[in-house]
């Protein structure tokens, strides 16, 4: 089983990289750019075949390591 974990900064936490990307897009002439926020995508392969168990394990992985929940939110998607 494969999963995609998306980790993003929480709303309200300043994202200077996202801001810089937004400015760069405007500099390239793209109009109407609103707020840009950057995150990261982590792909995880799992031996687990039970979807619910996999999701529970991934949730624990996120809380323990993949995300710092002081500043980050995470989203788990089972890809296949």
């Amino acid at each position: 089983m494969k999963a995609n974990v998306t980790v993003t900064l929480k709303r309200g936490v300043l994202d200077p990289q996202g801001k810089a990307i937004g400015h760069a897009l405007e500099g390239l002439g793209f109009d109407g750019i609103g707020e840009v926020r950057q995150g990261k995508l982590i792909e995880v392969e799992l031996a687990e075949t039970d979807r619910a168990k996999a999701e529970a394990a991934l949730d624990e992985m996120c809380r323990k390591l993949l995300a710092n929940t002081v500043i980050e939110d995470y989203r788990i998607e089972i890809a296949e």
């Binding site: 936490v13 300043l14 200077p16 990289q17 810089a20 002081v70 500043i71």
Partner: peptide, 11 residues
């Protein structure tokens, strides 16, 4: 310790 160290505001 509480909190976290983020990327410097000036990047």
């Amino acid at each position: 310790l509480p909190g976290v160290l983020l990327r410097n505001a000036g990047l």
